[in-house]
């Protein structure tokens, strides 16, 4: 277990994708992070990053969804068929079997940095 953690820490790299001002509050943009499409989303005071791929419509569009909350859970709704995803975990709130990848995000001196490797746990479903 330890060995795995050390290995992933050693490989971890971050990408500076844009400035905080490039993302209007309560909206998302899409960034290319190590070749992957990642939705960078501002909700309230936090910046989140999840995979841009919508497993329901099979299109790379999640960053273009409407940002909001369901019962206090920060979420984004796919612009195609409107399924909502928890921005913290990538969990689809309308289908327990579906989850999209999430990425660590840091905001430093007004810049948004995204970790190139998705968080462990991974995606599934649809």
């Amino acid at each position: 277990m330890n060995a795995v953690a050390i290995q992933s820490a050693a490989q971890e790299s971050w990408e500076d994708v844009c400035s905080l001002d490039d993302v209007l509050p309560a909206t998302g943009v899409c960034a290319l992070v190590a070749g992957q499409q990642v939705a960078i989303v501002r909700a309230s005071d936090t910046v989140y990053a999840i995979g841009n791929f919508d497993p329901f419509s099979k299109a790379f569009v999640l960053s273009r969804g409407i940002v909001g909350d369901r019962g206090g859970i920060p979420k984004i709704a796919s612009p195609i068929y409107k399924q909502s995803f928890d921005l913290r975990t990538g969990q689809c709130l309308d289908d327990a079997r579906v989850r999209v990848p999430t990425y660590e995000v840091r905001v430093e001196r007004g810049r948004i940095l995204v970790c190139c490797q998705p968080r462990a746990g991974g995606s599934s479903g649809a």
Binding site: L24, S57, A59, I66, I80
Partner: peptide
């Protein structure tokens, strides 16, 4: 103003999203 984030993707980009994006 703050209206950008209120719009469905069609209104947000003033065009109709289609299959595939």
């Amino acid at each position: 103003g703050d209206r950008v984030g209120l719009q469905d993707t069609n209104d947000r980009f003033l065009a109709n999203i289609q299959r595939g994006g």
